[in-house]
Amino acid sequence: MSVFSILIADDDEDDKFLLKSAFEESGIDAPLSFVDNGQELMDLLNKAKKLPSIILLDLNMPKKDGREALKEIKENPKFRSIPILILTTSNSPEDIRNCYFLGANCFITKPSTFEGLMKVIDELNKFWFNIASIPTKL
């Protein structure tokens, strides 16, 4: 069992399904958990006994969107160390600038094909879980 856990925040059912499927196809065995919006995300983080190793964050969500959640997480000393990977349909330069400004660790535009999605997951796995080191035991 992988020592890493991945938390995915996305309001779209299909996108959640596709991500889950892509992770499965890639053979990554890190446990996945899902939340539907920024509010649920913050609630989960505040209540969790063990924090996720990495968060995949969508930007456009109801109640509290990804941008707000990003800001809150990176301003909170308890959560700011968790690498946040923005995974969104948006490709606007303002969003990219803004997210990095707020402290996102990287910004990825969702690909249109399943193949593309798998490739992204693969690369993410290779980089964040194999090449880079991330904090454990938070």
Binding site: S112, T113, F114, M118
Partner: peptide, 21 residues
């Protein structure tokens, strides 16, 4: 254009997945 793109993306992604899986 953004709202129109979303279903198209899904069509491609799911079709693509179907071919693969």
């Amino acid at each position: 254009s953004h709202d129109l793109q979303e279903p198209l993306r899904k069509i491609r992604a799911f079709s693509d997945r179907m071919i693969r899986k």
